Every structure is written in C-alpha cells, then in structure tokens.
Computed example of a mutant assay.
Amino acid sequence: MSRRTHGGPARTGRSRATAALLATLTCGAALVSCSTNSGGDSGAASVAPRATPPDTSRFSGTPPSALASAASSIIGSARASASAAASSLSAAASEFEASVSADTARASAQAQAELKKVQGPGNARSDVAMTGMPRAKTGGLLAVLVNITNNTDRTASYAVQIDFKNADGKVVETRFVGAENLKPGQRAQPVAISRQPTQPQLTPVLAKAQRY
C-alpha cells in the first residue's frame, strides 16, 4: 500500500513563491549593480534630470533680440549726433554771416546804388580779385573774399557786383560789396556770401567793378 504525503499542494505553493522571490531579488541586484559607478561604491542608482519644457501659453510676443536692441541704439545715437552737428553748423553759419554783414551792409547798399548807373563791366575790374573761403571757416556757406586794391594815384571808392552761377551758367544770386575812400595802394577785403543751398554747387563770377 502506498503512503500519501500530507500537505503536498501547500508545500508546492511555498516552493513556487520562494522561487519567485529569489528571481525578484536576483533581478533587483542586477539592476543595482548596473547603476553603481565604476569605482565600486554602493551608492544609490543615478537618475538623469529631465528638462521641463517652457510654458508657451504665457508668451505674449517675440522679445527683441540683443542684436536688434544694439542696432537700434547705434542708429539713435547716429541720428542724435547728425542732428547736433547740423545745429552746430547752422549756428556757425549764422554767426559768420552776422559778423560780415555788420561791417559791410552799408557799403553793399552804396555799391548797389552806384552800379545801377554803370553800363557794362565797369572801369575797375583790373583792381579786383576774388579768393574762395574754406567752408570750414564760414559754417558751410559759399563765401568769397573780394580783394579790392586802389592802383591809382588818388583816393577812390569801389563798387563790385558778384554773380553766383549754376552749372548751366545761369545767375542764381547776385551780391554787392564795396570799399570807400581807399588811398593809393590801399586794399580792402569785403566778403560776398551766397545764401543759396549748398547743392547744387554755384560758382562766383566777377560781374562788375566800378571805381568812382
């Protein structure tokens, strides 16, 4: 007669549970072993941080780049400098013209009145020469230094007409200068200033010179 073993199913269940537990422990040991560093330290398994994407729903527009901001700053600075330079040049031109006009206004009016009586180029063109003045000294204005020399043997006065012509030879502006009571050999140097814009460029021409 065969003997029946008591507790067979229960013993079999415990064996299976033990095997499953051993398998789990083995796999866990393997995972920990792979996660440790090469130095053999038994530290915790390393976990790589995961980047958090930006919340684009909070964006209200495209922020200006650093390059755009720098370019805007440079342009603004250049405009301010150009404006300041233009204002300074205009002030210099006004100052130069005022200083000249104060000395020559009456002589200019006298010269213009005298030349109304003259037909042709006048009798004193050989006594008059012109020299262009650097714009750096005139505030950017076109100005001519008119050299009047009394080459006669007696005291005389002079009236001079300067025409400013464009590239086509057309007279755009006329200025009058004069010198009174010059002794023999004496020289006067009035200035004729054009009030026209710097462009197009004009050329000063001696139109008339009269000794009286």
Rank of each mutant, 00 (worst) to 15 (best):
M1W: 13
S2T: 07
S2K: 13
R4A: 11
T5K: 12
A10I: 01
T12P: 00
G13C: 03
G13Q: 08
R14F: 02
R16C: 01
T18N: 11
L21Q: 06
L22G: 06
L25T: 12
A29D: 02
V32R: 14
S33K: 13
A45I: 09
A45Q: 10
S46P: 09
P49C: 04
R50I: 15
R50S: 03
A51H: 09
T56F: 06
S57P: 08
S60L: 11
S60D: 04
T62Q: 11
S65D: 09
S69L: 10
S77W: 05
A78F: 03
A82M: 05
A84Y: 07
S87T: 15
S90D: 04
A91Y: 09
A92S: 12
A92I: 06
V100W: 05
T104V: 08
T104E: 10
T104Q: 11
S108E: 13
A109Q: 15
Q110K: 11
Q112L: 06
E114I: 02
E114H: 00
K116V: 05
Q119L: 07
G120E: 06
N123M: 01
A124Y: 14
R125W: 02
S126P: 00
S126Y: 07
M133R: 12
L141M: 15
L141F: 05
A143V: 05
T152F: 03
R154N: 00
T155E: 03
T155L: 01
Y158R: 03
I162N: 08
F164G: 04
K170F: 01
K170L: 09
E173C: 00
E173M: 01
T174L: 03
F176C: 05
V177H: 06
G178D: 10
N181M: 07
K183Q: 10
G185V: 02
Q186K: 14
R187E: 12
Q189V: 00
P190M: 05
A192I: 04
P197N: 11
T198G: 06
L202G: 04
T203G: 07
L206Q: 05
Q210W: 10
Y212K: 01
Y212N: 10
